[in-house]
Design a protein around this nucleic acid. Sequence first.
DNA 1: GTGCCTGTTGACTGACCAGTCGATCAGAGT
DNA 2: ACTCTGATCGACTGGTCAGTCAACAGGCAC
Lengths: 212, 212
Amino acid sequence: MAGRAGDGVDKRRLILDAAIRVFARKGFHHCRVSDVADEAGVAYGLVYHYFDSKEEILNRLFLERWQLMLDAIVEIDSRREVSARDKLYAVASFIIDSYRHEPELMKVIIVEVTRAANTFGRLHLAKIREAYELIARIVDDARRDGSFKSDISGQFAAMCFYGAIEQLLSAWIFELVPHTEEEFERAKSLVVEAICGGLESEPARGLSTISG
Amino acid sequence: MAGRAGDGVDKRRLILDAAIRVFARKGFHHCRVSDVADEAGVAYGLVYHYFDSKEEILNRLFLERWQLMLDAIVEIDSRREVSARDKLYAVASFIIDSYRHEPELMKVIIVEVTRAANTFGRLHLAKIREAYELIARIVDDARRDGSFKSDISGQFAAMCFYGAIEQLLSAWIFELVPHTEEEFERAKSLVVEAICGGLESEPARGLSTISG
DNA sequence: GTGCCTGTTGACTGACCAGTCGATCAGAGT
DNA sequence: ACTCTGATCGACTGGTCAGTCAACAGGCAC
């Protein structure tokens, strides 16, 4: 519980949620702290009771969600008897579903943090790098067991994979591409197929039954 | 020629070049117009003699360079008897070489425009979309002649391809990865190999001698 | 009741900065 | 010589906004 009024409302959370909506709508740089306070229905000063600065709000939003993703990737990687391709599919699913369920939050994270990492402290870069490394680990395991090519490093592969997904989300965010439920599901398969299987046709890949 | 002093210096260009350095160093939002004027060694007011606003400077920088890239892609696509893979290699080369030769300008374009397209007018989105479409066209031709898979649309493939390259440049920009001459050359091949050939091993692809 | 602590309020301040404007300067044309 | 035009200058203005602060409210301990 927090707050005196016994209304059972966590004002801190209220402010964070309002910030998601405001940052998504107007952009972090183009909105005022008063916009966030108004959206949350609290006094201007209360924002500074809970947060040190406007930027700290953004940091919290990012770290909160990014950590969820890092945890998810670790869990996915720990699954036994699962192919690298299926692990990458699970990672892509997690990210795409995050966007599907909380498009405003993901928009803020991608547009204001991930894709603007220079304007902020190096704090975020370390976290972003962590994601790369976890994905790279999945690929490196597959390189070791021979299912993935050994001449493309895990790090490089992670960049391509994450880059493709981020571009996909950006296309949705900037409305370059429609937001339909089928699109989300199709995109999961397609991105994995494009990155793992490649764009080129596979002329007579012998006996292996890949994707039907 | 421009300017009264007969010094033969184009002040407009001087301001644009100074803006590249300042925007790259401090970020568009975190620098003052006076920083640009100082860097260029001209009076504050002169900036407004040549440009309507701070934002117009950024727009010019972006449009100038982006058009060069669009023209290059059109030229590459027009080459006859060249495989889609080789065309994509040429596109990747153009972009990576742009970064190699003008890292500050590319940093500004990627960080302040491409990756921040929502904060600006829709003007840029249209140009960005144009690039996607040109790349998509290369892929669609290859799908028609059977060299690329038909189940991944040109549009989708273009997103993956461009996304991977942008991520690559971002990694250089944010110094997540070293800037060596060999890295640039390797990256060209690797990105094309990853996207066209895929990450997975090709078990016995007949006669082709890939990576020895 | 008294004192204290946390939550809450919103008016205010101080800094910052994009963009303006009137002045000055130098060459071209007549 | 005179004026017109465009380049060049930089002090100044007007507005914006992040962050501060002094005050107030209600619960809790004693």
